[in-house]
Nucleic acid binder design. Structure first.
Length: 277
DNA sequence: GTGTTTGTTAGAGC
DNA sequence: AGCTCTAACAAACA
């Protein structure tokens, strides 16, 4: 479950080593993951040079350029979903992952490898990335994501906070971990209706989302066993995955509940549904 | 076997 | 009509 901080970490790690490389070959071992198909992907991308690698929500956006100039810039969009992993192998012969699905080989012999145990991940080749990305909501770390902007998003609908924050069309990048972390830091109950928050509460939530995400990026994300190894944020999570342990703020106990079919971790003391200013 | 995860979609309900 | 919620689904693993 790589979320915004994990995807950002991957982009920062992989992006610089991708730029300037020419795609020489594409192999795909699980065809349903690749749209619109392997032969179309090869036609579009082979021979192109990678010119950019960035993140939008939980998407990794790889921009390339062919010989044809500005009109000829195909994109590869990658979504890791639950179990996707991405890394660059400098030597094409280095050990392969156990669930390797897609490999871009570059003309210098290095490879970009997409490994995905559960096959939910997707790779999309397109010359119009906006079509995939324009339905995404605001970037929570962008300047435009102000407290006022969040207030409008919350007050404009009457939904429970948790499913609202998880909705990629509203805010792009939060998943189960950082939604729970943000709500805990803000002292808000995940079942709280979005249009009942006071301006102070909106401000707390705004700050909580941004600090939780920034801290997670600083610690290179949360290690999720074999799915996403390497980050150190799991040591700093305050609610997610901590059922039974004490809340670091109020000495309450973190409990696991289910909200909109998702496992949800809250402190029932400092995240009450009512009576919280 | 059971539970867990993401995002999309279909259908129900208000 | 439009919004919201729920269930189902894809698939693997501990």
């Amino acid at each position: 479950m790589p979320e915004l901080p994990e995807v950002e970490t991957i982009v920062r790690a992989v992006g610089p080593s991708l730029r300037g490389k020419r795609i020489a070959r594409i192999e795909c071992r699980y065809l349903p993951m690749l749209r619109p198909g392997l032969s179309a992907a090869r036609r579009a991308l082979v021979g192109c040079v990678v010119v950019g690698c960035r993140r939008r929500g939980k998407f990794i956006v790889i921009e390339s350029r062919g010989r044809g100039g500005i009109a000829d810039s195909p994109y590869l969009l990658i979504h890791l979903r639950m179990s996707g992993r991405l890394h660059v192998a400098q030597d094409g012969r280095a050990v392969r992952g156990r669930h390797e699905r897609l490999v871009l080989r570059f003309d210098d012999g290095s490879e970009l490898r997409f490994d995905d145990a559960r096959k939910f991940g997707r790779a999309i080749v397109t010359i119009r990335p906006e079509e995939m990305l324009e339905t995404l909501g605001v970037e929570p770390l962008a300047e435009e994501f102000t407290s006022g902007r969040l207030a409008a998003l919350l007050h404009g609908r009457a939904r429970m906070l948790k499913p609202l924050l998880l909705d990629q069309h509203v805010i792009a990048g939060l998943g189960n971990i950082y939604t729970d972390e943000s709500l805990h830091r803000a002292g808000l109950n995940p079942r709280r209706r979005s249009d009942t928050l006071s301006p102070r509460e909106v401000g707390r939530l705004h700050r909580a989302i941004r600090t939780a995400l920034r801290e997670a990026i600083r610690f290179q994300g949360t290690t999720i066993d074999a799915v996403y190894p390497g980050g150190r944020m799991q040591e700093r999570l305050r609610a997610y995955g901590r059922a039974g342990s004490r809340c670091g703020r109020c000495r309450g106990v973190i409990r696991r509940i289910v909200v909109s079919q998702r496992g949800t971790f809250i402190c029932s003391r400092c995240q009450p549904l009512r009576g919280n200013a």
